[in-house]
Design a protein around this nucleic acid. Structure first.
Length: 584
RNA sequence: GCCGAUGUAGUUUAGUGGUAAAACAGAUGCAUGGUAAGCAUCAGAUGACAGUUCAAUUCUGUCCUUCGGCACCA
């Protein structure tokens, strides 16, 4: 998802830089045509069509040089106001600009900007002189579909950034370097959290003991919160009869994304791509009364989606997804409170990890021009969208209306965070659904002894554990809080021979207190072990020598600190237990 | 799926149309009592398949992986 920035103080500069880029490309590739070149949150891009020719990363250096050359000439950037006819004549050689002009919302007011002999259609604003465009860098070149439609041909998209000062540019480039160091794929390898295998296949992550520890702790934490809100844990199989998804509507909408599992004995099953239909069948397994509602189920199981191969990346898009999913089956009157509860859970959970605030909320509504994309009664949709918007306003979420972002069966509130590189990553969600219960003919008995369909409110807190780990790893840069750390305490004996027995006793004592502890008894020097303990970002490293042994104290060094602190052993354990309990 | 790039030991990197180099990690031995790398020895690699060539890790092609995007995302 690209965020076209409304405007900020850098946007005229970036916009002018995009024009400069286009001019340089035109100089070097006279056959080039240009589509659009907007300012985005981080800089700008320009879509270029070069026919048979193409620009590679190496060419960017050449283009940058040409840009610098042009800018130095210091031409004034002049605004031109045109009517539609003049504009069509002016750009008569350029099929892309003609397309743009013919599709303009306000064809009465057409503006173009001219520098030197280069004119580009543009709303502006721009800086005054090309000399001001000095501190820029072209970052990458990639493909992009013409008009964003995969049926169309591909253009080349060149990305760049521009700043007012050299320092600001360098700072930005440094930020990009630093962000690379936080990349979850890099840290996942360094800290041994997960891996991939060619034999198992791409998009199928394998979690190591350390990665699994984090996953399990997260699961425990989220279930603990949800249980307080009345969620009960269920467990459903990874396979299902395809009919289940024909009824839910997933089979037709996502047929290409289903993995099929067949057997020689005649089984024709699919791997579950979502959890909801399975859970509906638990609801359907007996007669439900209005007195039972809301009924809330949650589970953390694998689900499988045959994603487009080009979309698979690290842990953020995979085929096998561990999904933390939950549903509330409730009456129409209960919907609002259910949504409020779920948003509160999300807020609690993300706040406790320091992630709340680093996000925006999308009120994801229907694409009103394509009703065929959705299931359910339009009247129900109207009601759902209204309710969701009301709740969102009451809770002060400042949600942005996003038409066309709804789920198959209903509108949703999506919470969108950012990864280390500033890319958006959508995780928690609350979704309203009048349709699914009707499709499965789920009912409950009302007070008047009639039958009524429940409403389903879908919610994901962690969403996919894989995607959540991307956010978590990059947020903490691998230095997890104590309660999540795979190894919480690392014991280093000063001397392996003299202190080992005491260290083993200490290790067992910590283990008895449910503290995850490692004992480094390798034949290496203390400094060597300390270095590794720090690079592995273990929260507490404790050194055990005569002083500690004889006085029953713990000397520990916290990750990131240089000094050592000594406390009584009992006190140390109490402190840790309390911190873990409080999710610190 | 589309555009562009990528692939050398477990990891990070070097290099070459003719014996593939190193650091860290690993194994072994020695050394080792206080907070970020002790020493020595050993073992370990050119993604797969074709083609060009006397000879390919190097050049070409196809596929696969991974990366940056696009499109998709229940």
């Amino acid at each position: 998802m690209i965020n076209i920035k409304e405007s900020n103080e850098l946007s005229p500069l970036n916009h002018s830089c995009a024009h400069l880029l286009a001019q340089a490309v035109k100089n070097l590739y006279p056959k080039a045509f240009f589509w659009v070149g907007p300012v985005i949150e981080e800089g700008f891009y320009y879509d270029v069509y070069l026919g048979d020719d193409s620009i590679t990363e190496e060419d960017l250096i050449k283009i940058e040089k040409e840009m610098k050359k042009i800018a130095k000439d210091n031409k004034k950037i002049i605004k031109l106001e045109l009517n539609k006819e003049d504009a069509l004549i002016m750009f008569k050689e350029d099929p892309y600009k003609i397309d743009l002009i013919n599709n303009l919302e306000n064809p009465e007011i057409i503006t173009a900007y001219k520098q030197d002999n280069f004119i580009d259609l543009c709303k502006g604003p721009h800086v005054e002189f090309t000399k001001e465009i000095k501190y820029f860098k072209l970052l990458k070149v990639s493909g992009a579909y013409f008009k964003g439609d995969s049926k169309n041909k591909m253009l080349q998209r060149i990305y760049g950034v521009c700043f007012k000062t050299e320092e600001a540019l360098n700072e930005h480039l440094k930020f990009l370097e630093e962000a690379k160091k936080r990349d979850h794929r890099k840290i996942g390898k360094e800290l041994d959290l997960f891996c991939f295998s060619d034999l198992v296949g791409p998009g199928l992550p394998l979690f190591t003991p350390k990665g699994t520890t984090i996953k399990d702790e997260l699961q425990r934490a989220v279930e603990e919160i949800c249980r307080k809100y009345g969620f009960e844990k269920v467990s459903t199989p990874h396979l299902a009869n395809i009919k289940l998804y024909e009824i839910s509507g997933h089979a037709s909408k996502f047929s290409e994304e289903l993995f099929h599992a067949t057997s020689q004995k005649g089984h024709e099953l699919v791997m579950k791509p979502v959890q909801c239909p399975h859970q509906t069948q638990i609801f359907a397994s007996k007669i439900r009364s209005y007195r039972d509602l809301p009924i809330r189920y949650m589970e953390s199981e694998k689900q499988y989606r045959a994603e487009m191969p080009g979309a698979v990346s690290g842990l953020s898009r995979v085929y096998a997804i561990t999904c933390e999913d939950g549903h509330s089956f409730c009456t129409v009157d209960q919907v609002k409170q259910e949504v409020i509860n779920m948003v509160n859970i999300i807020k609690d959970f993300y706040s406790s990890l320091g992630l709340w605030g680093n996000h925006w909320v999308s009120l994801s509504l229907r694409d009103y021009s394509s009703p065929e994309k959705y299931i359910g009664d339009p009247k129900d949709w109207d009601l759902c969208e209204k309710m969701l918007e009301e709740v969102s306003n009451e809770l002060g979420l400042e949600a942005k209306r996003c038409e066309g972002e709804a789920a198959l069966y209903g509108p949703k509130l999506d919470f969108i965070f950012k990864d280390a590189m500033g890319r958006e990553i959508q995780i928690p969600t609350v979704q309203l659904d009048f349709a699914t219960a009707k499709r499965f003919d789920l009912t409950y008995v009302t007070k008047e002894n009639t039958k009524e369909h429940p409403v389903m409110v879908h919610r994901a807190i962690l969403g996919s554990y894989e995607r959540f780990l991307v956010l978590l790893i990059e947020h903490f840069a691998g230095a997890f809080p104590l309660w999540l750390s795979p190894v919480q305490v690392n014991i280093i004996p000063v001397n392996n021979d003299y202190h080992l027995v005491y260290c083993i006793d200490l290790k067992n004592l910590l283990l008895d207190n449910n503290i995850r502890v490692a004992l480094d008894d390798r034949n290496e020097k203390l400094g060597y072990k300390m270095r590794e303990s720090q690079t592995q970002k273990i929260p507490y490293t404790i050194i055990v020598g005569d002083r500690e042994k004889d006085n029953n104290i713990i000397s520990y060094r916290k990750y990131g600190n240089e000094d050592t602190v000594s406390v009584d052993t009992d006190k140390f354990i109490d402190t840790l237990i309390t911190a873990i309990k409080n999710k610190q």
